[in-house]
């Protein structure tokens, strides 16, 4: 399953995110929920999110050298950053996105 959201606008900072999940397993589900929430709150209309299910499409995982799911790759803006796990540490995700962690109050 590949879900894609494309909400690019004329904002100069455009994020491209790729999340590798394993079906609807607990950590994968939590990662999807957390990421969606953060994106809607902080990156509204300034991001693209690609969700790759390794159970359905393991080749994409191999090509991206993904070892475990869930794994989030922040492909753009460079340099690419990889975050592994259920994204329960939102502070770290915001930090990787270059957003002020203190505003995370959701």
């Amino acid at each position: 399953m590949t879900a894609q959201r494309d909400k690019e606008s004329d904002n100069p900072t455009c994020y491209h995110l790729r999340l590798f999940v394993a079906g609807d397993e607990p950590n994968s589900r939590q990662a999807k929920e957390t990421l969606n929430r953060l994106c809607e709150a902080y990156l509204k209309d300034h991001y693209t999110l690609e969700i790759v299910d390794v159970l359905e499409d393991y080749r994409a995982a191999l090509e991206n050298q993904i070892l475990v799911a869930p794994t989030l790759i922040i492909a753009a803006p460079p340099p690419p950053i990889t975050i592994i796990g259920s994204l329960s540490d939102t502070r770290r995700v915001l930090n990787a996105l270059g957003l002020p962690a203190s505003e995370e109050g959701l």
């Binding site: 999940v21 393991y58 070892l67 475990v68 799911a69 592994i84 329960s88």
Partner: peptide, 20 residues
């Protein structure tokens, strides 16, 4: 990755040839 595996915050490991 190891930390994530140990803490149980991953669901699957992608092995060679895509074996999960």
């Amino acid at each position: 990755t190891l930390r994530a595996i140990r803490s149980g915050s991953i669901d699957a490991i992608v092995g060679d040839q895509g074996m999960l």
